[in-house]
Nucleic acid binder design. Structure first.
Lengths: 214, 214, 214, 214
DNA sequence: CATGAATGAGGGTTCATTCAT
DNA sequence: TATGAATGAACCCTCATTCAT
């Protein structure tokens, strides 16, 4: 079972109602969407790559855009899953006394997830600007739920005197920039370069810690 | 003369051989490419928006992709212009004794440029992943020339003991993440939000200074 | 049991081998064919309306056109049934001494039949122009058998001096025009209008009687 | 110049803005629509028959249905043109003292028109039941304007004691049935048969005169 | 130089029909 | 017998590009 298959398994197995053909369609679509973009990918190309008839795609997904949404929506959900668990505060108290520990665990966890789902992440960030439907979902989930949580977390550590006093939104923006900057550089811009991942992550965290400490 | 016109004037006037019609075509194309993406924009739409016949576009630009390149290439050139001036080192010595001063001046200068050319910047980052031709230009110019220069600058300030000892690439990546993170958040993700720009930039620089100081 | 069901019962029960599902298919097909025409009706639509799987249709009718023929053929047969009874002449002598009585009884009988089968009649006249197969059947049955009989009837009453001397085909055409004209106006063109049916039929017969009397 | 061409010339020349290609498209469409029906005719077939590229059709007619409407609408207009002239009453008084003269002139005029435009008439009556847009136009023009006029005419001759006292709608229905019955039989059902047109029309008028005289 | 009619390949989607279950 | 997933040809329509005017 390939990495691609595992990725699909992980993201879509939940619903568990994906036909074998459907999985092939999804895999082919992810491939092409990530490489050439949604608009420049033809359904006939997806069908050929998936080894199914073009009509089969439309039996499972009413439109080409439906196929995109069916791919991106669960990706978005999984990406933000850690932020919507109920007892996040308890977790913070018990497991992460220090902000540094938290951010470290958090970065490692999300990087691992994204590394395993890079083509999906790529589609996500490439298509959100163009698809109002995705943008809506994104705003609703990220802007409202996730941001809410992140603010709480920042304020939690600010209250403990571990983060500089500064609007939480600014803190979030800076942390996010740093983290996504690393991921994008590492996996999208220069995936071929040699990376000492542990050290790079370590340094990235250091930047944040130095920059955000009171 | 509108902001849009000035932007075009600034970027394309150099060549100076742009017909009135050509300018309208470029303006319309920038508009549509930024909004819907290159692949999802039709030449007929551009023609209509520009108020010219469809054939006129192809008289000036052999293909639709040529039009894109004609738009993106000078943008890229202008964006990196400050890095390719000859006597950069002299400038550094004379004007920016401290790294903080340099980064401050630099950020402000480039942000101003991008703010005035946001649709172009948008097209740039949205289409580079899909257009091999653009990617090639990007790699050649950025990866080779700009990166070269940035390394020199970082090492210049490291030698002066103002930047932590760390591979210069890492320093560049972190600085770039932070700066672009701000620009993208400010102008693309949440342009409608209220931003206290000066303070935000100030804080962003502080993050970098704290994080990168020895 | 609805009117629709009765209609189907009457027309198809003879063969008597219609499954429950088959009846539903036929009912759904009649509905859609009458409303949107044969060519514009999809088998999937029929299947959905009938509450069966698409495959089921093709188990009973080899092609979509077969389904149409299976619907239209018996309709045509029933429509012309009165003309193919063997002892028509005997009937004429015994029951209808006067042409007026005959035409009255005849009109009322056929109008009643068509009223009960209006969607079928609609399909009949709408699809015959387009389906060579139906046209063939129509010609064979109507043009040859029915016309033959009608000529005999006309000549029968001409011999009795009750119909003007005139080619029988012309008489038939004029009578048919008048009768079908009424039916089409009454049930297809203006079914919503208020109609005093008895009076209208009475007047229509008067027109014919006045027009065809010697 | 063929009969087909003349027909098109007559119906569409007014607007006068039909390209040579457009005329070919219209001619081909009339041909196919009349023969196989609108829904069963493909645009590729029309293009091939017209000797143009498929795209050319859509440059002139936004959709396939637009093409149909562009064909049927002027036909309908021409068909009812005689009813919308302003001084119809004056015409009646001056030229047609007797109802018989009027109906004779009228029938001959409209039959001549329809004979020259039979494929168009065919499309008209075959597609009106399926195309709400056409039905709407038909209702608006025929039901409202034409019917209004016909009622006036009937009442005009009733007042002169030349038509039996009877609701004018009934008179119209019967006259229309008879006339269209002739046309349909003559040109659509049995165009191959030998017809003595003058005699048939004479007899048809006699039927009406006898039937409608007081 | 500018036009816009014309092109035909290719787009997304629907369809009647088949066949393994 | 009934199903409905699968098919791929054909559908209507859009597109980037050409070229005569």
């Amino acid at each position: 079972m390939s990495q691609q298959d595992k990725m699909i398994e992980e993201l879509f197995h939940n619903a568990d109602e994906l036909t074998e053909k459907q999985k092939k369609i999804v895999a082919a679509a992810i491939d092409s969407f990530a490489e050439k973009g949604f608009a420049a990918t033809s359904t006939s190309e997806i069908a050929k790559k998936a080894g199914v008839a073009e009509g089969t795609i439309f039996r499972h997904y009413k439109t080409k855009k439906d196929l995109l949404v069916a791919i991106v929506a669960p990706t978005m959900a999984k990406l933000i899953a850690p932020f919507v668990i109920k007892d996040l505060n308890k977790v913070l108290h018990q497991d992460f006394e220090r902000f540094e520990d938290f951010i470290k665990a958090f970065i490692e966890n999300r990087i691992k997830f994204l590394k395993n789902n890079m083509p999906l992440f790529r589609i996500l960030i490439q298509e959100i600007p163009f698809q109002p439907e995705l943008r809506e979902q994104f705003k609703e989930h990220i802007a409202q739920k996730v941001f809410e949580r992140l603010r709480q977390i920042v304020e939690h550590y600010q209250a403990k005197g571990q983060i500089i006093e500064m609007p939480s939104d600014t803190v979030i923006r800076m942390a996010a920039s740093t983290i996504f900057g690393y991921i994008i550089a590492r996996y999208l811009l220069a995936p071929e370069a040699e990376w000492d991942d542990d050290t790079e992550i370590e340094r990235t965290i250091q930047l944040l810690m130095n920059g955000l400490s009171p």
